[in-house]
Each structure stands twice: as structure tokens, then as C-alpha cells.
């Protein structure tokens, strides 16, 4: 679904923040993009989304693939309501009403935001704003999800609801690239991992492969693997 081969990318000319990063996200797969602060996760996502001018390499979506991006910090229009934001997303991706209205309503109920459906998200709490971003993405039913730190601000119930939805979408065949610091959850839900450090690829593979690459024991957690790999560097 998504094939990434970034040679280098950065915000300024001749100043690359990330180098030699390559991975693939297949249909129905959940890939965890890991790394410490400043490792280059957000830059990688921005490169995939085409938001950076200065980059070399290739980012290939399978033909006809639609994606939805959930940013780390929710972004909104100050004067559009929650419902209008979803309507905006549907209009931008040219969805007909019958393809999104019912699903959006279900999702709003699912995330318990029905009472604020016609309110302005600028008045929402951090968690509610994050839910709006997730609702928008899930309404579009894209082929690829690019999700940056989805757990920020979500309460335990919403986190559980979100993970259930992720599972459903994977079962539908959607590919998911998820960037997170919550390693215990990532260990539980991700099929494979990509670990970045100082703008380069440090390791990639399944949990088993990460254990092998790090030299940590066969029972070690993802956190142990990441920790060992970072120390080895």
C-alpha cells in the first residue's frame, strides 16, 4: 500500500534531518514508527505527506490509494463546527453524502461526542479534539492511515475504543502507519516496527526480529529492545 525510500529530507536546503529511511506498509498491517524525541518521526511523516520541499527519494502509494492523516496536534478551523469539519473532509475527498453521513454519525456516537456535534472544536478539551481528528480519519475509510501519537489526551476508554476501531480497519484491509512513544501498547498491537534514531533507521522488523537485532533475550519487551538498540548506537 505504501512504500517509502527516503534518501534524505529536511526543512532547509542542504540540511537533511533524516537520511536513508526505507520501509513498506502492507494491506491490513500496522507498522509502528518508533524513536526518541527528535529522532525524525515527524519529519518522516511530513515527507510521506509531501509537506516538505527539500527531499530526495521516493514515496509510493499504491494506485488509487486514499490516505488519512491524524496529526499529533489537532488542527481546526476556528469557525467551523465538529460536523462541518467532517463535512469538509468528505467534500475534499469528494465523498457522496451516502458514503459518509451515517458512518460519521455512528463514529460521533461511538466516541461520545454527540452532544457537541454542532459545537466549535476550538472549545473542546485536548482529548475531545483528538477524538475529532480520529472521527474525521475513520469517516473517510481510507486505504492508508498515517497516525501521529494517537494516544495523546485520550482517556482509557477512548484509547480502548480507538484500538478496537484500528483492529476493524485492519481487518478491512487498511494499512496503518502509527508513530508513538507508548511502547507497551505498540508492542501489543503493531505487526512490525521501524526504529529511528538521529534521523536514520536503527532497526526494523517484527518484535522477534527486534529482539534478534538488539541481542536482548527472547522474553524481552519492546522497551528493552529499543533501549538496548539505542545504547548500542
Amino acid at each position: 500500500m505504501l512504500k517509502v525510500a527516503i534518501e534524505e529530507a529536511g526543512y532547509e536546503k542542504r540540511e537533511s534531518n533524516i537520511r536513508e529511511i526505507g520501509f513498506e506498509v502492507k494491506s491490513g498491517e500496522l507498522l509502528g514508527l518508533l524513536g526518541s524525541n527528535g529522532a525524525g518521526k515527524s519529519t518522516t511523516i511530513k515527507t510521506i505527506l509531501g509537506l516538505l520541499k527539500e527531499w530526495k527519494g521516493s514515496v509510493e502509494f499504491k494506485d488509487g490509494t486514499r490516505y488519512a492523516y491524524v496529526p499529533e496536534l489537532p488542527v481546526f478551523y476556528d469557525s467551523l463546527t465538529l460536523w462541518e469539519h467532517i463535512e469538509f473532509a468528505a467534500a475534499a475527498t469528494a465523498l457522496a453524502d451516502e458514503d459518509w453521513v451515517e458512518r460519521a454519525q455512528d463514529l460521533i456516537r461511538y466516541f461520545q461526542l454527540e452532544h457537541v456535534k454542532h459545537h466549535l472544536p476550538s472549545s473542546f478539551s485536548k482529548g475531545m479534539r483528538q477524538k475529532v481528528m480520529l472521527i474525521t480519519a475513520f469517516t473517510l475509510r481510507p486505504d492508508v492511515y498515517i497516525i501521529d501519537e494517537p494516544f495523546l489526551g485520550l482517556d482509557p476508554r477512548a484509547t480502548k475504543d480507538f484500538l478496537k476501531l484500528i483492529e476493524k480497519e485492519r481487518a478491512r484491509g487498511a494499512a496503518i502507519l502509527m508513530c508513538t512513544h507508548v511502547l507497551d501498547t505498540a508492542e501489543r498491537i503493531c505487526d512490525r516496527f521501524v526504529l529511528l534514531s538521529n534521523g536514520t533507521l536503527l532497526a526494523k522488523g517484527s518484535l522477534e526480529e527486534m529482539r534478534e537485532q538488539s541481542g536482548a533475550g527472547s522474553e524481552s519487551s519492546l522497551l528493552d529492545c529499543v533501549d538496548t538498540l539505542m545504547e548500542q548506537r
Partner: peptide, 28 residues
């Protein structure tokens, strides 16, 4: 004090009846 609901077109009411994505975008 943050405004909770907009003062115009409350209830996310559409302005035009036309439902094409283009019309909806212009509406928004």
C-alpha cells in the same frame, strides 16, 4: 471565554441545497 457554538448557521445548517462536493466546499 471561548465560544461554543457559532453565532451564524447554528446546528451546522447547510446554506445551499446542492450536494456536490464542490458546492459543499463553497458552502463551508
Amino acid at each position: 471565554i471561548v465560544r461554543k457554538q457559532p453565532f451564524l448557521f447554528r446546528g451546522s445548517r447547510r446554506i445551499r441545497k446542492k450536494r456536490s462536493p464542490e458546492a459543499r466546499m463553497v458552502d463551508l
